[in-house]
Amino acid sequence: MLQISCPFCGPRNEVEFVYGGPLKNRRPDDISQIDDTTWIDYLTVPKNPLGPVQERWWHVRGCGCWLTITRDTRSHDIIESEIES
């Protein structure tokens, strides 16, 4: 069970949150100008690094904010969390 520190509410149990997936790269501005491999990579190939990853979590049963957290996949330590603007 994770304890996620919400910048507004403070440390809260994971059950208050919904996982929103990994923080993805920005969507290409003009998809007609990129090749299929790049587009498929953007859409479907998930990154799975060993170490810090950035994830989106929704504090749905709390203040309602979307957070971006940095979590170390080796230890589950949450290094940083910030509210998405």
């Binding site: 509410c9 809260r12 149990n13 059950v15 208050e16 749905v60 049963r61 709390g62 203040c63």
Partner: peptide, 24 residues
């Protein structure tokens, strides 16, 4: 609820949305 409701974390005038029996 899993919320830390001790006075140090949830003061006399504390109020918060949280998970209560699985419900917001």
């Amino acid at each position: 609820s899993p919320i830390d409701h001790h006075l140090t974390a949830f003061p006399e005038n504390g109020v918060s949305f949280t998970n209560i029996f699985g419900i917001k």
